[in-house]
């Protein structure tokens, strides 16, 4: 991977909430065809970092680069335009809307006069769900009628809309059963095969070691070690807790 321009790079990024230092001088690089896991204890700054990349929070200082170019990700729609798709920890869906509407939310296919191209969006949604082997009764089902696992599946299907190049997954398996978790991990590997850069945030070291190429540890908002996927459980755990 050395020598190539990373797809996404954070250089000395800090984010403060008043006196609280959520992120301090964090560096992170993600290349194409790479799954980078971000691990750390509660409050280590993982979700803050995800929100900075997704355009929900802006960094207090430091530089974000996409394709080596400095960028300002000022809003989620700017993130979309830059090719960054995100899945957040809290199930971020509109329960009153159906599956298709949720998958395409914010990136609807527009026809003449701003009207929705409903037919095409439905066809594409069904193809997408089939591709990810997600079973849902109908793409016209409102999300309030689906289980938590099915909702998360819809949220993950969302990330593939609009040809993203970088996908940020914040605890994508937290609310899922064992079988559904395995499916999501397969999906993450498929994202890598498609040439995307993936940032995977998780508590579960087994999940992380199963799919990632590199594991970055955050502790108290700072970088605290970078490990290959072959690193032992104990080494990573020591970096997370600061025991080393």
């Amino acid at each position: 991977m050395r020598g190539r321009t990373p797809l996404l790079a954070l250089r000395q990024v800090s984010r403060y909430f008043g006196a609280v230092e959520a992120l301090v001088d964090v560096d992170l690089e993600v290349h194409a065809h790479e799954v980078v896991a971000l691990v750390g204890d509660n409050g280590a700054g993982k979700s803050t970092l995800a929100k900075v990349v997704a355009g929900v929070l802006s960094p207090s200082s430091g530089q974000v680069e996409v394709d080596g170019e400095p960028v300002t990700i000022s809003s989620p729609s700017v993130a979309n335009q830059l090719g960054v798709a995100s899945v957040f920890q809290d199930l971020a869906v509109c329960e009153n809307l159906d599956v298709t509407a949720n998958v395409f939310l914010g990136q609807e296919l527009r026809g003449r006069a701003g009207l929705l191209r409903d037919g095409e969006m439905e066809t594409e949604t069904r193809a997408l769900l089939e591709h990810l082997t997600i079973r849902i009764p109908s793409v016209r089902t409102p999300l309030r009628h689906l289980s938590a696992g099915q909702r998360q599946a819809v949220v993950i299907a969302r990330t593939l809309i609009g040809q993203p190049r970088i996908v940020v997954l914040d605890e994508p398996t937290a609310a899922l059963s064992v079988a559904q978790t395995a499916e999501v991990l397969t999906h993450i590997q498929r994202l890598r095969e498609l040439g995307l850069g993936v940032i995977l945030i998780s508590h579960n070291l087994n999940d992380v070691r199963a799919v990632s190429d590199r594991i970055e540890v955050l502790r108290h908002g700072r970088n605290n070690g970078s490990f290959p996927a072959s690193a032992t459980h104990e080494e990573i755990l020591a970096a997370i807790t600061g025991a080393a």
Partner: peptide, 16 residues
């Protein structure tokens, strides 16, 4: 409808 259903989710999805 998205804003009324879940303002937070709509915002994160890029709805203005």
């Amino acid at each position: 409808y998205a804003v009324g259903g879940n303002r937070h989710a709509a915002e994160l999805s890029g709805v203005k």
